[in-house]
């Protein structure tokens, strides 16, 4: 300790310093969270750049239907489970686009159905092989025609959850707005009537109960419910 203290420090200064760092530890709730912001500031831009570099538009290899693990997909929700009437449900697709739209569930189900059996990976460490069925987000993008400046996509959910994605990941052929899980209609717990699903991002990026998709030129200070609390923004797999 003596090595890192300035030589002229007084006993009084030392006591004040010790008190302040002690208070800091208490305020933190847990001393071990010290340094988290600093290490993230240094390495997260690097990790994100590498993940973006590794992102390819070719599909991630899928699993056979026999590999589906129906019991492994755990339910996580940050707040409540909203009950949406499928008849009244409308998905807004807008922002920096030429043709903003309001789509009913019937409109969405009339679009080409894409099914995939992929691994859903949760930030907590668990994973589940799941079959999702729905419409490619790139199909919706073709309908609304994003303007050239659009680089991000925001997803707003009925429970107040929000997320933002980079455009390339959003237009990946396996990034879907799904209404089926394991060959059945999506359950409310899993995000019915409509949720985001993709093999290329962690589970917290895959918003449930999505009501609004917005193409944006810039990221806002709010980037995602969990992202704003310290999870990675890109979260690419």
């Amino acid at each position: 300790m003596g090595l890192i203290l300035p030589r002229h420090i007084s006993r009084r200064q030392l006591l004040i310093g010790a008190g302040l760092s002690g208070a800091g530890l208490l305020l933190n709730g847990c001393g071990t969270s010290l340094g988290v912001r600093q290490v993230r500031q240094v390495t997260e831009p690097l990790n994100q750049a590498i993940k973006a570099l590794l992102l390819s538009q070719s599909p991630v290899p899928e699993f056979p239907v026999s590999a589906i693990e129906p019991d492994k997909l755990l339910i996580n929700s940050f707040n409540t489970t909203p009950q949406l009437d499928p008849e009244q449900f409308r998905l807004g697709v807008g922002g920096e686009v030429n043709q903003p739209m309001q789509l009913s569930l019937a409109d969405i189900q009339a679009l080409p159905l894409t099914e995939m059996v992929i691994r859903h990976v949760c930030v907590e460490g668990w994973a589940a092989i799941v079959q999702w069925g729905g419409v490619q987000l790139q199909t919706l993008a073709k309908l609304v025609q994003p303007k050239p400046g659009a680089r991000y996509v925001y997803f707003t959910s009925a429970d107040g959850y929000y997320e933002s994605w980079d455009l390339a990941s959003s237009l990946h052929p396996q990034t879907l707005m799904v209404y089926q899980k394991n060959g059945q209609p999506l359950s409310v717990d899993n995000g019915a009537p409509l949720r985001l699903a993709s093999p290329i991002k962690l589970g917290y990026k895959q918003s449930k109960w999505v009501t609004q998709i917005s193409f944006e030129n810039d990221l806002r200070p709010e980037q995602g419910y969990w992202v704003d609390r310290g999870y990675e923004w890109f979260a690419g797999l």
């Binding site: 071990t32 340094g35 290490v39 993230r40 240094v42 390495t43």
Partner: peptide
């Protein structure tokens, strides 16, 4: 137990893990 952990919560643990991995 907390005594052997670093990061304070999952997000903090991940920040440290994916920094020190380099």
């Amino acid at each position: 137990p907390d005594a052997v952990l670093l990061g304070g919560w999952l997000g903090g643990g991940r920040a440290w893990h994916f920094a020190i991995m380099w």
